[in-house]
Design a protein around this nucleic acid. Structure first.
Lengths: 341, 341
DNA sequence: TATCATATCTGTACCGGTTTAGTGAAACGG
DNA sequence: CCGTTTCACTAAACCGGTACAGATATGATA
């Protein structure tokens, strides 16, 4: 392979065009106003002739801006994350920013990821977190203290924390799901809940309870079973529930919903004829089930996009206080829910 | 908010420790050998006292290495990409590299992404591509010419192109799937194929044909229908196929497989009692179907990991010729295949 | 005692951009 | 006609690291 060609720098371009480096720099940064048309043209030609492309690293060192934001995801294996990346990437690209991605399955690696990205001088950080209620936040508050713009998605933070949050309204989603079942005439509505150490689990459970209360329905404790978001836990929970004869079930997670569906089918029952089902989470995941599951669709692409927008605001105006943006879920009515027989 | 503290630089640390910047730099880069224990300790203390962290941007400018690689994905919406990111991210992190991610749905945005990443001085590029047989490669060959280390995953390139490839053995996977059906005693084995403008579609079809030929089975043209990888096309293809009474179907894509499953069920038939089914692609996607589908599992996480490893080799030794690494798929036998009745 | 090698440490020119302060000439105003 | 703006452009100091070419002290050798 050939020796890598001697890099063409801004000074080379300046010499080629017979102007100063400042002039070339001005040209590159669109400060065309203070330049004669003739000079502009000479610089343009020189750049073209040399095939010059400015070095972003050098620029970043001088400007202290990298036009890069860091996205740290605490569970890259969770099905929720791809849409977040999609939304964040699109918003970044539109704003001429790049996306530095890191996976951080535990608190320790999250700390390291934050540290590394700070050294890499990212202009801001987005954290998309697993929903543990007792997640550690000290390193984020510390980085924020030192002036690093941060936005979190789906993360429990202490009341009044100065860091902007993008949250998905789990309570509201669960409420909508349960109300839908109530409106179909169901009265024995069960719930397979997420774990109690996740705010997603707690909020969805609370939404379920609120909808029942609003409808004047008493809560039968045997109709609420806690799972761990896995297919298997949904399967097992549904097996138990079937003994208590609910006519509908609201399931607080998509994998659990597919597990529940399987348990129902293994018991020789049919959806929605014998039992109505509403799932929660990634709508694609349960779309191609048979029957297609009615589900609560969380606007996750949107969450990624909005997180980037909030972050860019922060980068432009660091003093902006920490707001919380709550995103509304939608109920997608498909084939797994029907009026009570 | 407070004024951002004046940055602590390597010169500050040097002054604090009473040594030269070179010495601090040596300390930071592990050249401890040429340093007395006492000096080492003084530098350590100074760094700690000032809370100093080196600026990677400045380092990158000086060394011409960013310890960052670019991952450009041509269809972030495809279900195959998350595992690739997962594998690539893990391999990067282990090698102390960072991952810059870009989505590039079309050739134009791919060109721009390559260009941007080159300006950002990434040490190398990985492209995970959609499988079109006529995809444009000129910009990659051009970048390679200029010394940018590149590795592609799942991309059609001209014979003898100097760019290393990581490929998934679609032919072999399809062969395994079809042979599995043959071994179960099936003789009328249908195929729902991917599009003819995708090498994944062509290779899987070829693998299917090879397995039939090996078993001495004639190919009935009506048993091969081309889909477009969508759920709907799988549904429609299966409706047509049902008229021709196959006893088994190998389906060259996971969404199409779920569509086919749906069509079978809508026709009042059962899997695997009336019809055996083998899918192809993301194993999770069809795992939670009822019944769980037998499928060909492509080692996609592995592909991301190996791509990074190949790339790092290239970065270390740029003259290494362009090899092709073919990854073996696995057949996961689940519930959708049974011996012929 | 002079000479040389070794170990430890330093001064400073880079890397390739941006930006501030300033220059000279032309245009302008009274 | 002369002082002041304005215009178009430039020189050089940064940004914060790395790394090369020495400098100095110490001990070994002749």
């Amino acid at each position: 392979m050939r020796e890598r060609a001697n890099r063409t720098t801004i000074r080379r371009v300046a010499r080629e065009a017979g102007v100063s480096v400042t002039t070339v720099s001005n040209y590159l940064n669109g400060r065309h106003s203070q330049m004669s048309a003739a000079t502009r043209e000479r610089v343009r030609e020189a750049i073209e002739r040399l095939g010059y492309h400015p070095n972003h690293v050098a620029r970043s060192l001088a400007t202290r801006r990298t036009a890069t934001i860091g996205l740290i995801i605490s569970e890259l294996t969770n099905a929720l994350y791809p849409p977040v990346i999609l939304g964040a990437e699109a918003a970044c690209r539109q704003a001429q920013y790049s996306l530095l991605l890191a996976n951080a399955p535990d608190t320790d690696s999250e700390r390291r990821a934050v540290e590394l990205m700070r050294r890499k001088q990212v202009d801001g950080l987005i954290l998309f977190s697993v929903s543990f209620i007792d997640i550690a936040n000290d390193h984020l508050l510390h980085a924020h203290e030192e002036g690093v713009p941060i936005v979190v998605i789906n993360r429990a933070m202490p009341e009044g924390a100065p860091i902007p949050k993008v949250m998905l309204d789990n309570f509201r989603g669960a409420y909508l799901a349960t109300r839908h079942l109530v409106e179909l005439g169901h009265r024995r509505i069960a719930h397979i809940a997420g774990p109690a150490n996740r705010f997603t689990g707690l909020d969805r459970r609370a939404g379920y309870l609120a909808a029942l209360a609003e409808a004047g329905l008493a809560v039968d404790p045997v109709l609420v079973i806690e799972g761990d978001y896995s297919f298997e836990s949904g399967y097992q929970a549904m097996q138990v529930l079937l003994d208590h004869r609910p006519s509908a079930v609201f399931i607080g997670g998509d994998a659990m919903a597919l597990g529940a569906l399987r348990a129902i089918r293994d018991a020789g029952l049919r959806v929605p004829d014998d039992l109505s089902l509403v799932a929660f989470g990634n709508p694609d995941f349960v779309h191609y089930a048979t029957p297609a599951l009615t589900t609560v669709d969380l606007p996750i692409v949107e969450a990624g996009k909005i997180a980037v927008e909030l972050l860019l605001e922060r980068i432009a105006a660091p003093e902006t206080p920490g707001e919380t943006r709550m995103l509304e879920p939608r109920l997608l009515v498909r084939e797994s829910t029907a009026p009570i027989a």
